[in-house]
Design a protein around this nucleic acid. Structure first.
Lengths: 216, 216
DNA sequence: GCATTAAATGACTTGAAAGTCATTTATCAG
DNA sequence: CTGATAAATGACTTTCAAGTCATTTAATGC
């Protein structure tokens, strides 16, 4: 009759990722400063003291969250980039559609917003994001643009700026939706924007894949 | 002989803007949460208690800073927009160059970064920024694009998305420089980007002002 | 079973900064 | 010059959450 119900269990292995997942949720929902470690602990189903067995401080936990959130969704994008080796006209629409699908909802844009907000307080966080996300993506794109220029397929000009012309509107749209909400009359639909902007910018760069596409 | 040196003077009229200016500097340099009201008071040359004669709380002071920073630099941009009435091919390069000049350095990008970062904690701030900056700019551009489409000068498609294609890279570049620093190898030069992207996107939208421009 | 260990707890301590208020003092009216 | 007013001060109080640690208890080995 007497039920055995232990008050807690030892989970040395599973705890860290559980905590980071919980922290990502709470940080994404509230931002860094307003988030209380008690909230994270409660969501992770543990006590605050337990947090300190795995992370030395709130800051370190935040860093872990950023690293964790960044790690996953990047190999895929980068993979698509090197897969479409060379052909910018093929890559750009695929890349933007993929990003629209993966990043449309979820916690990555929220993370990005937080990194932007906390970049002054935690410069190392900005470096992590730069090296793992923004810089990496821009590197790949810039290289591809330069190669296409060498083949005479893309107009001259700074390939780094061309890279911004390609992904800038998308990044801006992501942040716009994150900050002002999808309810704003100006918030663009990500999939539609991926399609339309890809066509616009490719035309602007003079690749003209339009010939071999179906009628609009 | 005995110098008269009053410890302070009464400046009921001048104080508010002085305080807001000081607060903008400190907030821009440190971010919202890390900024101490003592720091703002010291920079404004007053005591902390005096702040509370003019602003009820740190939050309200922050709101005042955003409103103040937003108010100034917008009429100009919007003026340029309505001045070049209709002609998108003329407006876009001018608009981007103007923005590069006005926003390149200064506290507006820092403010933008803060609004992004604090938008979760202060949703009303995001609304202010939306209505006074982002939404306003997008409205003007979207209208102009739609008019140009009606005249058959711009390709079909959602004019709001076209507006993002125009200003998105610039917004992204501003934030990129603000977050990752101008030292990043990917940080674009704003003036160069304004020139090159304007040409790219206008070509993409099929306005083609290139004919009446000098050789590259 | 029994002793050992370390994972987990949560009440407590600490520190820092927002916000208060009794006092001081510049300014002004008469 | 004098008293009244309110702008300005800064030491003090309050608040709140990060971080600590003595204690509890699940798990493990003998």
């Amino acid at each position: 009759m007497t039920e055995i119900k232990p008050k807690w269990s030892r989970r040395k292995e599973a705890r860290p990722t559980e905590i980071v997942e919980a922290a990502m949720d709470v940080f994404a929902a509230q931002g860094f400063a307003p988030t209380k470690l008690d909230d994270i602990a409660k969501r992770a189903g543990i006590a605050k003291g337990t947090l300190y067995r795995y992370f030395d401080s709130k800051e370190e936990l935040f860093r872990a969250v950023v690293r964790h959130g960044v790690a996953a969704n990047l190999e895929e994008v980068e993979g698509a980039a090197v897969a479409a080796r060379g052909n910018l006209g093929d890559l750009v629409p695929v890349l933007l559609m993929l990003a629209a699908d993966r990043l449309g909802d979820g916690r990555i844009p929220a993370l990005a917003r937080m990194v932007v907000g906390e970049s002054r307080a935690f410069p190392d966080l900005a470096i992590i994001w730069h090296d793992a996300v923004a810089g990496r993506l821009l590197s790949v794109l810039t290289t591809l643009v330069a190669q296409a220029q060498a083949r005479g397929e893309v107009r001259p000009g700074d390939p780094g700026i061309h890279a911004f012309s390609i992904v800038g509107p998308f990044a801006a749209a992501l942040l716009f939706r994150e900050v002002f909400g999808a309810g704003s009359p100006h918030a663009p639909d990500l999939a539609a924007m991926a399609r339309q902007h890809a066509e616009t910018v490719l035309r602007g760069l003079e690749i003209l894949p339009a010939e071999r596409q179906r009628e609009g």
